[in-house]
Simulated assay, not measured.
Amino acid sequence: MDRVIVYVDDAAYAQQVLAPLFAREAAAPTQWVLVACAPRMTHRISKWVSHSARENWRTKWADKLFAQILPGLRAPANSVTTVVAKGPLVELTEQLQAAQPSAAQVVDARRPKSDAPEDAEKGQKAGRRWPTPRPGTLMGSLLTGFGTLWVLALE
């Protein structure tokens, strides 16, 4: 039996990435280990939320994620194991690999942190605070007036 460890954080993206793997592996029996990688919380959140509340939120988030992904596996329920990542993924991978004698294939199906074209557009929009004044408009006249006042005040 083949073993596949899959790291996921977004169901839609993971299904796109794993679709070819699901189709290829349909014939062979496969033990799937789905690892939910919850979004990181800042260290300052502990000021407002208890540790148990954070763990409960992480578990509920993972349950929703697994509910979206499991129907796409089209595999018997006994061949899927779900895990919620609570620490570094390197250590978790070593633990999961050590649990079975045979090596497992590891697939990272997490959504990339940044998409270059979208971030560039957001950066351009965020960098411009004020609209460019057009000549003959109220804002253009106000800016010209303020500039003239500053010149007179500095003289």
Results as ranks from 00 to 15, higher is better:
Ile45Pro: 00
Ile45Tyr: 00
Ile45Ala: 04
Ile45Gly: 01
Ser46Glu: 07
Ser46Ala: 09
Ser46Val: 07
Ser46Tyr: 02
Lys47Glu: 04
Lys47Gln: 06
Trp48Glu: 01
Trp48Lys: 07
Val49Ala: 01
Val49Gly: 08
Val49Ser: 01
Val49Gln: 01
Val49Ile: 05
Val49Lys: 00
Val49Arg: 01
Ser50Tyr: 01
Ser50Leu: 04
Ser50Lys: 10
Ser50Trp: 03
Ser50Asn: 01
Ser50His: 02
Ser50Arg: 03
Ser50Gln: 01
His51Asn: 12
His51Arg: 12
Ser52Cys: 00
Ser52Met: 08
Ser52Asp: 05
Ala53Met: 04
Ala53Asn: 02
Arg54Phe: 00
Arg54Asn: 01
Arg54Met: 08
Glu55Lys: 10
Glu55Arg: 09
Glu55Gly: 05
Glu55Leu: 05
Glu55Asp: 10
Asn56Arg: 13
Asn56Glu: 07
Trp57Asn: 03
Trp57Glu: 02
Trp57Pro: 05
Arg58Pro: 10
Arg58Gly: 09
Arg58Met: 14
Arg58Gln: 11
Arg58His: 14
Thr59Gly: 07
Thr59Gln: 11
Thr59Glu: 12
Thr59Val: 06
Thr59His: 02
Thr59Ile: 10
Thr59Pro: 00
Thr59Phe: 02
Thr59Ser: 13
Thr59Ala: 13
Lys60Trp: 09
Lys60Pro: 01
Lys60Asp: 10
Trp61Ser: 02
Trp61Cys: 08
Trp61Ile: 03
Trp61Gln: 06
Ala62Thr: 00
Ala62Ile: 08
Ala62Val: 03
Ala62Leu: 11
Ala62Phe: 12
Asp63Phe: 02
Lys64Arg: 14
Lys64Gly: 11
Lys64Trp: 06
Lys64Gln: 13
Leu65Asn: 03
Phe66Val: 07
Phe66His: 04
Phe66Asp: 10
Phe66Ile: 09
Ala67Ile: 00
Ala67Tyr: 07
Ala67Gln: 14
Gln68Cys: 08
Gln68Asp: 15
Gln68Gly: 02
Gln68Lys: 15
Gln68Pro: 05
Gln68Ala: 13
Ile69Leu: 15
Ile69Phe: 06
Ile69Arg: 04
Ile69Trp: 04
Pro71Thr: 11
Pro71Cys: 13
Gly72His: 15
Gly72Ser: 14
Gly72Asp: 09
Leu73Met: 15
Leu73Val: 09
Leu73Gln: 10
Arg74Lys: 08
Arg74Ala: 15
Arg74Pro: 00
Arg74Thr: 11
Arg74Ser: 09
Ala75Val: 15
Ala75Trp: 13
Ala75Leu: 10
Pro76Glu: 15
